[in-house]
Design a protein around this nucleic acid. Sequence first.
DNA 1: CGATCGTTTGAAAGGTATCAAGCGCGGTGG
DNA 2: CCACCGCGCTTGATACCTTTCAAACGATCG
Lengths: 249, 249
Amino acid sequence: MMTSLAHGAGPLIRKLERLIRLNDDERQALDQLPLRIATFEPGHEITRQGDRPQHCVAVLEGFCSVSKIVGEGGRSIVSFHIPGDIPDLQSLHVAEMDVSLTALTKTRVLLIQHEDARRLCAQSAAITHAFWRETLIAGAIAKEWVVNLGQRDALARVAHLFCETIARLEVVGLADDRRCHFPVTQEQLGEAMGLSTIHINRTLQELRSRGLISWERGDLEALRWEDLKAVGDFDPGYLSLAPDWVVLR
Amino acid sequence: MMTSLAHGAGPLIRKLERLIRLNDDERQALDQLPLRIATFEPGHEITRQGDRPQHCVAVLEGFCSVSKIVGEGGRSIVSFHIPGDIPDLQSLHVAEMDVSLTALTKTRVLLIQHEDARRLCAQSAAITHAFWRETLIAGAIAKEWVVNLGQRDALARVAHLFCETIARLEVVGLADDRRCHFPVTQEQLGEAMGLSTIHINRTLQELRSRGLISWERGDLEALRWEDLKAVGDFDPGYLSLAPDWVVLR
DNA sequence: CGATCGTTTGAAAGGTATCAAGCGCGGTGG
DNA sequence: CCACCGCGCTTGATACCTTTCAAACGATCG
């Protein structure tokens, strides 16, 4: 892991602006935050289950997964994270990490020292609420994954994940026209969807043969968006993409 | 639904005290909150998916489920809630409910008007953090459900749910000696675990025949706790039951 | 050019769903 | 008080989705 000092928390501010309206003081407080940027190579663990980290992570570039160790040597991916996400806000409140955070691609992250994050929260209720909202959306996505894993067969499950991913990436400008980069392996897809790699492969073939998606070398495209949504039983409501946020000040 | 005015937010205070240390001012502010208590009969929806509620719900007595509508007429239970839980905190932040909250038993709840909750948050950072923490724990449980549904077979899945439920109920004094009341039907268990009612039934028989549990008329007992934990691959870490909370003030 | 990783294919085994039907008990009404 | 009813639980047989095992393929890389 390489770290370096950085000035300016532009990406973090943009992220928070999506969650709540910041005033100048808050923007300035964020901008003056002593921030460290770290880069991780694919497969490297940013935070490990059992760690007691002293900082939070905001993803700037790249893709990460949150996973838990299962039984004997297994691993279960519990969520994917994209630029703009803060995947480990719980570390502010719970001492020991109950999950691991892993870089799926080369990933640049902002390290926010806990003391700085706490000071920010103490200074600004709006920032506290923005963090809380980030937690709420992550929870809503997790609930939808519970539905996905519990109720839908392989085809619908993968279709749903693709819809969710495209929808989330569109918000941060990383998907246009239902097309995005989503560089996960079929094995990782399987660990996330509760399916064997082999069945993921066959499911992808089915989605492709139905003309619903194309996916090569990590480039995903929904060829028939409405049909893909229908197959995946996808309703983006839970993502709170149109934030009719209640004003909290 | 019947409502009545109530004075004193004892149960809510006890709940929050588990999440954070309250000072006298905060305790008093909570105690003076104009609170309404409502009672719901089994099967009744406390809040419906699509609603725009003006209040939050704190469970005082009884059991609830949070569920989502799936595809054609299906229902997926995403979480169970026990006394002390505040299952719909997201309604403070997101206008439209993306889930339904249903009473599984006769249930008494505290209705906290959003304006009151917001005033409380504005007055006390500690209460804000307590709510946020409640959200974080709910998220951790949801992630563990993702693991449960994605990675474990029926036997382990049900065993894990029973362990989790007993552990959570012990915290609020509703389980002693690995024994508790957990009055859900096998159908509801199936909707939560992504299994057919029939397979739930066979799984319960297997758990019983192995001498791991007894379960009659909603009374659940873990007969061999350690073995049940092993079968369910249960590690209570994610529940944050021993709150080595970081002091946030 | 061998090695490795990710993907793909085939065949067999296994876990779970579905269909169909019977059981048992508490509640209701005659 | 008893017959009936309905809901939740239980059982058996079959079908289906998904896993597992085994192996080959293709690309990238040193």
